[in-house]
Design a protein around this nucleic acid. Structure first.
Length: 311
DNA sequence: CGGGAATACTAGGATTCTAG
DNA sequence: CTAGAATCCTAGTATTCCCG
């Protein structure tokens, strides 16, 4: 391997101009420095790159071969540096973002499309997951930033949360809901603990943690056995099951806003305050965001906040 | 043909970088 | 912090080209 890639740059300019003096002017060094660099390079690769013809340098076969490799590299490098410079002036390049699964599925594709109408040079990689998946990716730089669910985060153990910077973006309301028909047949306006706990539950993932959290919050009862009739892997499936009168389930209210407005889905309230799940933007504490990141974060926060998830 | 301009090379010294 | 390596500079030399 070469000890000094800078000599390749010297070689490139000497080859391009066919003269040491011209190359030295481009490189802003003395003619002798260029001459010496060239000699060092030739020594290093143990091949002569130019035949010295009195006042001219004529490339040897080895010189031609080296130039064939160096030339496209230098072109690409110049283009790349230009792009990097541009990305400081206007949004550019790939953004890698993490988001909670349902939140990300529901809103990100649309947001990304709208952002790209304005900034077509920006592309996206979207990683959906819970905080346990997303935070390590933020830490190792595999994603640029993430939106996470703080309500869930508090129930889990993270060794070093202080390396992150959290800024709350939006609150979503977590409700227990069922279809109108199920409500009239089974709930009948009885919102007592003993009545609600005996309902048929649709759970998101196997541990039914969301159901447990809901009862803990509203009735301060932690370790209760629930009758789970269906376990699903996505909120969309859960909402669909609720709509088809399969039972009661925990959802973010904004995901069923339309169904609630139409009266298809009914929220079950208690006198206790609503459960608010806070979604926060999380980035590494000491990371300096790029222009593209800053502009997209601002765009996203404005759009999310203007949606009003409680409507 | 001779002299000036252009270019490449070398020697020696100053400065900067790097590893211990 | 320091010694040695690497790099660059200046000064000077050699060669060739070009024009009067």
């Amino acid at each position: 391997m070469l000890q000094n890639l800078g000599r390749l740059k010297v070689f490139y300019h000497v080859f391009s101009k066919g003269s040491v003096l011209s190359a030295s002017k481009i490189l802003h060094v003395s003619q002798s420095a260029v001459s010496q660099s060239l000699q060092k390079l030739e020594e290093e690769i143990q091949s002569q790159l130019f035949t010295r013809m009195h006042k001219r340098l004529v490339p040897t076969a080895a010189g031609e071969r080296l130039f064939a490799v160096v030339h496209p590299f230098m072109q690409e490098l110049a283009g790349c540096l230009k792009n990097i410079k541009q990305s400081r002036e206007k949004p550019f390049g790939e953004l890698r973002i993490g988001a909670p699964v349902e939140f990300g599925k529901a809103y990100f594709p649309g947001m990304v499309a709208r952002f790209r109408e304005q900034y077509p040079e920006v592309t996206f990689y979207l990683k959906l997951g819970n905080p346990a998946t997303l935070l390590p990716l933020v830490e190792t730089g595999q994603i640029d930033f993430a939106f996470v669910d703080l309500f869930l985060t508090q129930n889990q153990f993270f060794a070093n949360l202080d390396i992150y910077h959290f800024s709350p973006v939006v609150d979503e309301e977590i409700i227990l809901a069922c279809s109108k028909r199920y409500y009239e047949k089974q709930i009948k306006s009885d919102h007592s603990f003993s009545h609600l706990k005996s309902q048929q539950f649709i759970a998101y993932r196997h541990n039914a943690q969301d159901v447990k959290n809901w009862f803990k919050h509203h009735f301060n009862k932690g370790n209760v056995k629930y009758d789970v009739v269906l376990v699903v892997d996505s909120q969309q499936a859960l909402i669909s099951a609720v709509k088809h009168h399969a039972g009661v389930g925990i959802v973010a209210s904004h995901l069923v806003a339309k169904e609630m407005k139409e009266g298809l889905i009914v929220p079950i309230h208690t006198p206790k305050p609503k459960i608010i799940n806070q979604i926060s933007l999380v980035l590494l504490q000491d990371k300096v965001p790029t222009l593209t990141e800053k502009i997209f974060q601002k765009f996203l926060i404005e759009k999310i906040q203007s949606m009003n998830l409680f409507s």
